[in-house]
Every structure is written in structure tokens, then in C-alpha cells.
Design a protein around this nucleic acid. Structure first.
Lengths: 205, 205
DNA sequence: TAGATTGTTAATCGATTAACAATC
DNA sequence: TAGATTGTTAATCGATTAACAATC
């Protein structure tokens, strides 16, 4: 079956909400609706894409659902992550506890700055970006976070792809060109601010 | 007319691409398509929502289009921004040159950490978050970036709304509850990583 | 005039919502 | 059995694409 792409971030949201529940064994789509802001029909539909997890008349078993959603999202196991760019943003991401807590372990950090290479950041050695290819091939990492300046981004991403990386979270304000089988998600702060600017501007008219 | 919401980030993308053009007076929807990855029909449609900027037979005048898109996005003028949270992420955002370059000036920084309050960060004084209400009312800022820990986020956002803020870029991993007339965009790193995890997981099956 | 490309209408596609039979 | 809620089908809504007359 073809799953609508907006379902996946919603699955992630449902999972988050389930984690925050205390002393609740069963939850209905209606309750999940109230906790997430998604409609109850949408909750049921999203879940039904992946299986029959509920029990008509009562609802969903919270523990079962947590486990199922974890499996769907592929976070039943940990992922090793490579971080490219140890500047301000990269360092902030490295220090962010949310990642490790969610099972995403930044295991390798690369930079091209001689001053940073070889130093430790958050207990992880900063490697020369030239080692990139060797390193990822060796260790089989397939998830990378790119936090380098705009000018370097496409080149770094090309290199990552050559190194066997399959999924990239990109913070540089470009839409990198990659082959079909690579998944890139772009987080573009300027675009987000411009969306807010558009909203504020419109509001007045 | 009702404008599809995905159009706005695309407008932002078109604008970005136009900025990068050198020595080009006229551009066709076909060329913009190649540069952005959006279809030519979509480029024309997005632009047509806002006016008739092109010239049949030739294309769009680059300078004219730049100006028009700036107006649409509301970035023909600068915006003052308040940053809440001067931790790792907040500091990285503060140091990020892209914002200022795009006309988003972080003018106020707030934190609740006694150790940070009163100190300068990137030349900007860190204020006590308790001053928030007073400060935003006084100065008429209506755009804020929230980079505080999850536990503090909803409270901070409530406070921002009371202070008259109308648009919020939120980095905390919650879906804050706000009234209808407030626009919140959430940047949720865990969800993005989970989308990538889902992709990687699926790929194998 | 011939060629090119816009702006717009109609057709298609995809996602969300509504409704309800099946189930507990 | 009566009440509640799922899973699923059909209806609706919204966004994208295709096609082409109008325009330069």
C-alpha cells in the first residue's frame, strides 16, 4: 500500500504523545486526537496503514501501540549518525540530548577546520573531512546530519553519497541534488522565517 | 483568493534561486523549474496567485520578480526578532549570519539562567525572561524564536502570546497550544530523524 | 508572421474527512 | 444486550499537472 507521506511525521507525533502518558493502559483515537490536534479519523487511518492495532469498542493498548510505532519508525534499534560540520550549529546539535535519548547516536564528527580536527567535542573526536569516505565505508553508517556553510554543502553531500550514506538531514540553505535512492530532508531556517514573515505581512492587510 | 500553503515555501525557494543568478535579465518558468526542482506549471501557478509578473513569449524579468517576491514574503523590510533561550541552540542561531543577511534581526535575547542574564552574547544583552512581557509590549516585536528545553516551552510560548507576539518559530519538541490568530512553525529534529529512520528501515524490506 | 512562453481553465491526483458496518 | 470504538469504504476537499488560448 502507498502511505501518504504526511502520515509519517504524524506517526512520530503519536509516538511522542504516547511516551508522555502515565498510568494509562488503553487510549482511543478520540483521545489521541485531543492530544495531537489531528482528527480521530486521521489517527485511525494513519495507524490502519500499518496494521490492526486497536480493539473495537475499547481502543488501543498503549504499550502495544508504542512498540508497533517504534517498529514502524525503525527506532526499535539505535542508529549511528555522522555529523558533518562542527561549527556553532553542529556543536549545538552534538550537545543536544534529545538525539541520543531517541536512539540517534552521533558517533562521528567531521570538519575541514585544521583548528578543530583532532580535538574532542562532547567526547567525540573531530575527524578530517577528507577521511569521510574511508570512515563511513568502514563502519557502515547510513545517516548523516549536514551542518556546514552553504558554499560547502553540495560538495559535502556528494561526498556523503559516494561514501554510502542513504539519508541526510541538511541544515544548509540549498536544495541539494542527489540521486533518486537517497533521502534528503532540508531544514531551512530562512524559509521558515519567511513563511512567518508572509503570515505577519498578510495579517495586516 | 485562497493560496495553497505549500506555495509559500516555494516562493521563498524561487526567491533564493533568483538571488543566486548572475548576468541574467529574463528567466522562464522552465528555467526556474530546472533550478528549483518544481514543475514549470507549478512555478507559473505559484506566481500567478500573486499577480501577472511575466511576459508571454519571453518570461519573467529577474529584477522585477525579485522585487515582487520580496514584497509577497514581506521581506522588503527588516523584521525584529526576539530569541528565547540562550543555550547551545539559541547561541548557534544567534551566531548564524543567515538571519541578519535575510533581514531578520535578533534584537532581544531572553533566558532564565542567572549566569547568563546581563552578559553579552554576540553583542546583545541577555535579558531576564521575566522582563519578557514588558519588553515586547514596549518595542512592538511580533516575531520570536523559541529555543528553550521542552519542559519550559509551553510556558514561554504562553508568555510570548500574552506579550503580543504573533508568529513563533519553535524548536522545542512539542506542539504548543496557541490561539487561532497566532502562527507557530515547529522545527522538530527528532521527528525529522524519525522520518529518515522510517525511510532507511523501509528501504531494506 | 512564426516561435515562444505566460496565465488560466479543466483534468488528475492524492490526502483528509465522514459515515457506518463489524467487532468487542 | 447496549454502548463504544475500530477499520474501512465512499465522499469531499485541496493541490498539482496538463493543456491551450492569449499574448508578446
Amino acid at each position: 500500500m502507498k502511505i501518504p507521506s504526511p502520515s509519517i511525521p504524524r506517526i512520530s507525533l503519536y509516538y511522542r504523545v504516547l511516551l508522555s502518558l502515565k498510568d494509562k493502559d488503553i487510549i482511543s483515537s478520540q483521545e489521541l486526537s485531543e492530544l495531537t490536534g489531528c482528527s480521530a479519523a486521521q489517527v485511525r487511518k494513519d495507524l490502519a496503514y500499518f496494521g490492526q492495532f486497536g480493539r473495537p469498542g475499547s481502543g488501543y493498548n498503549v504499550e502495544v501501540l508504542k512498540t508497533e510505532l517504534k517498529n514502524i519508525l525503525g527506532i526499535d534499534k539505535d542508529w549511528d549518525v555522522a555529523l558533518i560540520g562542527a561549527g556553532n550549529l553542529g556543536s549545538a546539535l552534538l550537545a543536544y540530548k534529545g538525539f541520543r535519548g531517541q536512539g540517534f547516536n552521533i558517533k562521528y564528527v567531521f570538519d575541514n577546520d585544521r583548528k578543530k580536527i583532532g580535538k574532542l567535542k562532547q567526547g567525540i573526536k573531530v575527524r578530517d573531512i577528507l577521511e569521510l569516505k574511508k570512515a563511513t565505508k568502514q563502519i557502515g553508517i547510513n545517516l548523516a546530519v549536514v551542518a556546514v556553510p552553504q558554499e560547502a554543502a553540495q560538495e559535502v553531500i556528494d561526498e556523503l553519497v559516494l561514501s554510502g550514506i542513504k539519508a541526510i538531514l541538511n541544515f544548509a540553505p540549498i536544495r541539494p541534488r542527489v540521486s533518486e535512492d537517497i533521502k534528503v530532508l532540508n531544514i531551512d531556517l530562512s524559509t521558515e522565517l519567511e513563511r512567518l514573515s508572509y503570515f505577519l505581512q498578510r495579517r495586516k492587510v
